[in-house]
């Protein structure tokens, strides 16, 4: 298909050296090197994309001293967020989809970690999106105590407690760093909300570190 050569290359049968007779063959070699370099570059990008934060270690039930109100008869979802984490936009989008699909069965709390020497979290894009989500409450975590109560480390981390306050899911709801779309985490949450057994209880979290 790639009919490049108008000249032929010779193979030195003695030592197996290929003599490049013309520029088309040289261009082909350059193209291959170029392509390999790009593959390497994308490999690095993908590696970063799928590098998850530390796995969460949530408590088996909803922390009683958490300043987050639960509603009787409804599941409670808590998402930890760094206000400026760009990867959490995708997590926010997936949460919007979940809340849109399950308006009556779950109440969400979006806990924003207020960082030192940073503007107030209420000024961030994520906070402004959070307050728009129905049945969701944006909460400021000034000193990181709330995230510590739930054992969260990474922005975008989600904890789902059923109506009885039992932990049913902990992890991320994006398939890779900053990517929207279907994910095992969102599927698991949906399964819990649908009273189906979840495929897994934990998924990797892709986002910025909260601490």
């Amino acid at each position: 298909m790639l009919n490049l050569t108008h000249r032929k290359s010779q193979v030195d049968a003695g030592n197996g050296i290929v003599h490049i007779m013309g520029k088309p063959a040289f261009c082909r070699i350059i193209a291959i090197i170029w392509f390999m370099a790009i593959i390497a570059g994308f490999a690095i990008v993908w590696k970063f994309d799928v590098t998850a934060g530390p796995m969460p270690h949530p408590s088996a039930s909803f922390p009683t001293n958490a300043p987050l109100a639960r509603e009787a008869g409804r599941a409670t979802l808590v998402m930890m967020l760094h206000p400026h984490c760009p990867c959490s936009r995708a997590s926010m989008t997936e949460l919007e989809k979940l809340m849109g699909t399950n308006p009556l069965t779950v109440k969400a709390h979006l806990v924003f970690s207020q960082q030192a020497r940073q503007p107030d979290v209420s000024q961030s894009e994520l906070w402004k999106r959070a307050v728009q989500i129905p049945h969701a409450v944006a909460v400021k975590d000034s000193d990181g105590t709330v995230s510590s109560m739930f054992g969260a480390h990474t922005s975008g981390e989600v904890f789902l407690y059923d109506a009885d306050g039992i932990i049913r899911f902990a992890g991320g709801i994006t398939a890779s760093r900053g990517h929207e779309g279907d994910s095992d985490g969102r599927a698991a949450i949906q399964a819990v909300l649908d009273d189906n057994a979840p495929a897994m209880m934990q998924t990797p979290v892709f986002g910025c570190s909260l601490r």
């Binding site: 760009p86 936009r89 940073q118 570190s209």
Partner: peptide, 9 residues
């Protein structure tokens, strides 16, 4: 969209 990444502050 994603100028910086964060680790806490």
């Amino acid at each position: 969209r994603s100028p910086t990444t964060w680790s806490g502050p």
